[in-house]
Write a protein that binds this DNA or RNA. Sequence first.
DNA 1: ATGACGATTGCAAGTAATTGCAACTGCATA
DNA 2: TATGCAGTTGCAATTACTTGCAATCGTCAT
Lengths: 140, 140
Amino acid sequence: MKEALRKKGVPLTPQRLMILDVLQGSHDHVSAEDIFHEVQKSYPYINISTVFRTLDLLKDLDMVTVTDLGGGCLRYHTVTNSHHHHLICHRCGSTTEIEDSVLEPVRRAIDAGYGFEAQMHHFAIWGLCRECRHTDKEQQ
Amino acid sequence: MKEALRKKGVPLTPQRLMILDVLQGSHDHVSAEDIFHEVQKSYPYINISTVFRTLDLLKDLDMVTVTDLGGGCLRYHTVTNSHHHHLICHRCGSTTEIEDSVLEPVRRAIDAGYGFEAQMHHFAIWGLCRECRHTDKEQQ
DNA sequence: ATGACGATTGCAAGTAATTGCAACTGCATA
DNA sequence: TATGCAGTTGCAATTACTTGCAATCGTCAT
């Protein structure tokens, strides 16, 4: 990741290096606040807007994905070669990871129909999970 | 819409009626701010949090969709029986409306694979439009 | 070395949206 | 008519994120 940025001629400042370390060190979906607090441990002078601006930069370079997984803030995730998406139940809040291949037919249909290159790297798909669908039916 | 709310036993306060009128009167995708200013014309004492809380209520009842179409704020749209989605080019900003049927294979695959009822009523799909893909290739 | 430049940063102020809370409303019940 | 209560509203404060701007940094030519 650092190598890729260097190749593109993007200046690797100390702040950016620390943010990258946190992003790559955590395999979860982290919030800007998470990163901010983690970097603060070693460099207390870091500013939250630097974190947001770095994440923005990485997003524009397609190196991180930004997703609203609920919980009141956006979540950031480094782009790996195997994309994935999330099913989120808006009743019970449970989440399930799904493979990117599920979205492939849509990508193809959009390309064929509109010539549009859909970059769906990390989607949050809201709905009702298996369990909540069943309790719904029982109630009726 | 008002009838549907009345049936569900949701109190139809004057504020809610005015918000509903604006929502149904504008066939576009409106922001909370748009609604707020429109209602203010006839009732200057309306509060922006009432607008947000009403939109939240309508969202929970699946009567409006909430979508981030860019532009710095969320856009609200009454749910009609014919859903649609948006392709947004993150290079030139152009938007294209697409039919819901494009997402049908995904809905089916997610149902078959996970038993999850995906409620994709109003998606913003970001990517590169036909024109920007071509200029991209020319540059290389 | 020196100065010019473009990019980055920290800070403060701003924006969109949410939340806590007290006051109010409509409605049922005594 | 008075009382209680659930639901709603307005207000103020807060949260997540963005933006404008001055100060700083790196680096490149002189």
